[in-house]
Nucleic acid binder design. Structure first.
Length: 419
RNA sequence: GCCGGGGUGGGGUAGCCUGGUAAAUCCUGCGGGGCUGUGGACCCCGCGACCCGGGUUCGAAUCCCGGCUCCGGCCCCA
């Protein structure tokens, strides 16, 4: 293990410097505000879970894409690859007594063992929510309205696409065509892979699946009259959402993780991101079999924080990071330093960002430092001042300096910062 | 798992094709000084790097092989 090895990060992980963190916190803050104004409450679940929680649904092979390990007593564990299953586990084990609809949100890191590339990391952050129990139609409208609000707060609503599909309809169509849960076809539908579909289907099946991909509702209604009620409802819902200024587009080709989704599903795209342009996805799901519980209405979605931030950067729509007023204190002697510590304590108590020179810089460099780092005020605690019982206070914005008696310093500083 | 392009001080780079003078360019950063206590300037000094391992060669940052890793594209995506 060389020094270089020790200094390198695990593949697919990132460090965030102060500048980046300020952006992330600002973005996160907007999410929190929207979720809370919509009546959601925050939860947090463990970073790792029993592997069985995730295997139960999709089988052992999903371990391939997860960080899997055993603890000292041989318990099989994984770093969580998503947050819907942990949230529902939490719900069924401890939260079921809470009143419904239960609206929960989370901001958490998740882990997937995949090849990193643009917009894909092995550790990334999801901000999402779940709505547990409620009328499905109202839940969908409420859910998509939050998505609309979030996109609107970030000023990218008009630039994004929200596509609404329905995996139950897709499933029924395939069943009516005599195709039984064929993952290859479903995958091909998701990717608009016409050639694969053609090679796997008869002429009539192909014709109808093509209608499905194109979301040709009229054509489907004509070919599959058994489904006309559901298709009509789908159309009606889309136009209702549009009337509510939620710009969804119907797209029956959206299949998402076929495994637990059921009913309406949606995805949000930021088309300017290229290959990995999906920034949000979700829908209704059914985990009753995993937890051996009665079926209840559950809906959720998650934004990929990292991708959203990429999208905001590329579109030049990053939220403003609020700037706080700040004070820099320079002391030119050890005697001055201990006086400075006492003064700075009082200023900090007022909630003002305050820093002091702990490097023994000379006056010139200290001033340069304060200016380069955008401080508003600089206090000079030097022997010359202390002999007179004062402190020099420099307004760095106006470039004026005054000597102020020790007792009046805090008030004087606050006064300058108020301007 | 596959394909393509990269990895040179803390950050950004030149050098690589066409190996060679004492092992490296420029910008920036950082520290100090000029200026013994005051404006981001300027000047000076200092700090600091060829991803790792093998090979070819008298000689490798440079060429070859392998690995790691980063970027991008596939595959996959609970």
């Amino acid at each position: 293990m060389t020094k270089k090895d020790i200094l390198s990060r695990p593949r697919g992980t990132r460090d965030f410097d102060p500048k980046e963190m300020a952006i992330r916190r600002a973005v996160e803050g907007i999410f929190r505000e929207v979720f809370e104004t919509y009546g959601f409450q925050e939860i947090m679940t463990p970073t790792f879970e029993r592997a069985e929680l995730f295997i139960e649904k999709s089988g052992e092979q999903v371990l391939e894409e997860m960080y899997f390990f055993e603890d000292k007593s041989g318990r099989k564990l994984v770093l969580r690859p998503e947050l819907t299953l942990p949230t529902m586990r939490f719900y069924f084990s401890e939260l079921r007594a809470l009143q419904k609809p239960l609206k929960l949100y989370y901001v958490s890191n998740v882990f997937r063992y995949e090849e990193p590339q643009k917009g894909r990391y092995r550790e990334f952050w999801q901000i999402g929510c779940e709505i547990i129990e409620g009328d499905p139609k109202r839940t969908l409208i409420e859910g998509l309205d939050i998505v609309r609000e979030i996109l609107s707060r970030f000023k990218i609503l008009e630039m994004c696409e929200i596509k609404l599909g329905n995996v139950s309809i897709v499933r029924k169509i395939l069943k009516l065509l005599g195709i039984q849960d064929d993952r290859r076809i479903i995958r091909a539908i998701d990717k608009d892979d016409i050639d694969t579909i053609k090679s796997l289907t008869t002429e009539r099946q192909f014709k109808i699946i093509e209608m499905l991909i194109k979301t040709d509702i009229e054509g489907l209604k004509h070919e599959l009259p058994e489904l006309s009620n559901e298709l009509k409802e789908y159309e009606r819902l889309i136009s209702e959402l549009q009337n509510l200024d939620i710009p969804v587009k119907g797209d029956l080709g959206i299949t998402r993780g076929w495994d637990y989704y059921e009913g309406y599903v949606f995805e949000v795209y930021a088309p300017w991101l290229g290959a990995e342009k999906q920034i949000c996805g979700g829908g209704f799901y059914d985990l009753s079999d995993v937890f051996e519980e009665e079926k209840i209405t559950t809906f959720g979605f998650a934004f990929g924080l990292d991708r959203l931030i990429d999208a905001l950067k590329d579109a030049n729509k990053l939220p403003e990071v609020p700037r706080r007023k700040s004070v820099y204190v320079v002391s030119l002697s050890d005697r001055g330093f201990s006086i400075a510590v006492k003064i700075i304590r009082k200023i900090r108590k007022k909630g003002i960002i305050c820093n002091l020179d702990t490097r023994k810089r000379n006056m010139r460099r200290a001033l340069e430092y304060a200016l380069e780092n955008d401080y508003d005020v600089m206090l000079i605690v030097g022997d010359r001042e202390l002999d007179k019982g004062v402190i020099s206070i420099k307004d760095l914005r106006k470039n004026v300096q005054e000597e102020v008696p020790l007792k009046g310093v805090v008030e004087y500083v606050i006064n300058i910062l108020r301007r």
